[in-house]
């Protein structure tokens, strides 16, 4: 496949960014990226139910203001968005904390359009342990109830940022596939946010996919060279080798509307969770982004690089979106 064929393929493909955040306006970055759908982190990880409702409602307002945006609650909605030249938001969350102490809220939020929920964010919450929690304990009784409720309602379980043992127990318990929306293989980049071969294999054995991420602190493989697109390719190819190219996706973990990420949120997250970025920061203090894959904007470059490396059209379409679409379709109860 030559470069122009790769460009054409990218324009034609369903492109799903499996993890991104903060959309307040249409953005050039997003338009350049060629995305069809964005799985959005909507509530703050510390929000309760009330604040989460407000945060989700802000996306209804945004869609009303900007007709090029739409909210997808099915994979057909995503395909329709592509046909209509729109970008679809998949409403998600990076912590189940907004469910507070009541698993019945899962169904309520499904009714509001929520389709992806990550169980925990770095620390222990009422559902289970996060990846920075030193004890690495498993699911709580409430966590087990929430998983059953998510299976019943048809909400995708996301296990990025989740502690190893909690993630393995979730995969075991869930009757639907789970995903890691934005995590890289620990075998290449030893970082508390990344995941072991066992996590990758269990996830895929359960029908899920693993979303590789260009987020610099977890893409970096150590050493003198700051992270580059080559590292992201290496992560993709490692996972593809381990569990097959049909089980790889992408989560850019990037801001949709540049400048919309409140500075106090960045500061708070850096203060509360220094561990994942500390190694890169100490070795390369000024590096914040992965060279050549700074945000979703470089998704077309990823397609070009994969084509150069001999990936087939179907494989590339899979990584860009169809693999995730297959899993969403199943967990959202469309089969």
């Amino acid at each position: 496949m030559d470069a122009s064929a790769a460009q054409q393929l990218h324009r034609d493909a369903i492109v799903v960014d499996g993890c991104s955040f903060f959309a307040t306006r249409w953005s050039d970055r997003m338009e350049t990226s060629g995305v069809t759908a964005l799985q959005m982190t909507v509530p703050m990880t510390w929000d309760g139910a009330r604040d989460a409702i407000s945060a989700y409602h802000a996306y209804n307002n945004l869609v009303e203001r900007e007709p090029r945006f739409t909210i997808a609650t099915s994979t057909q909605d995503i395909r329709d968005a592509k046909a209509n030249g729109q970008v679809a938001f998949i409403l998600g969350a990076q912590s189940g904390q907004f469910l507070e102490t009541d698993e019945r809220l899962v169904e309520v939020f499904h009714g509001l359009g929520v389709r992806v929920i990550q169980l925990t964010y770095n620390e222990r919450n009422l559902l289970g342990d996060g990846c920075l929690e030193p004890k690495n304990e498993g699911l709580s009784p409430l966590g087990r109830q929430v998983i059953k409720a998510m299976n019943a309602a048809g909400i995708q379980i996301d296990l990025s940022h989740v502690g190893e043992r909690t993630s393995l127990e979730a995969i075991e318990l869930s009757t639907q596939p789970c995903i890691f929306s934005h995590s890289n293989p620990k075998a290449l980049a030893d970082n508390p946010r990344n995941i072991t071969d066992e996590q990758i294999q269990s996830c895929v054995a359960g029908g899920g996919v693993v979303g590789v991420s260009p987020y610099a602190p977890i893409a970096w493989r150590g050493g003198d060279t700051p992270p580059t697109m080559d590292d992201v390719i290496a992560h993709i190819e490692y996972v593809a080798e381990l569990v097959g190219p049909e089980n790889v996706s992408i989560g850019t973990d990037s801001e949709v509307t540049p400048g919309s990420y409140p500075a106090q949120v960045t500061k708070r997250l850096a203060t509360e969770y220094p561990e994942p970025s500390a190694p890169l920061r100490s070795r390369h203090p000024n590096v914040r982004k992965t060279t050549g894959f700074e945000s979703m904007e470089q998704l077309p470059d990823l397609t070009a690089r994969l084509a150069e490396r001999g990936w087939t059209e179907d494989q590339i379409r899979g990584i860009l979106g169809e693999n995730l679409m297959r899993v969403y379709s199943k967990t959202w109860g469309e089969a």
């Binding site: 620390e123 222990r124 009422l126 920075l132 709580s140």
Partner: peptide, 19 residues
């Protein structure tokens, strides 16, 4: 269970949390 640790009726007390 709460964000800080486990209560006396949690079967497998996972101890004090990082938070």
């Amino acid at each position: 269970r709460c964000y800080t640790g486990d209560g006396c009726l949690v079967d497998e007390d996972a101890g004090l949390t990082r938070f």
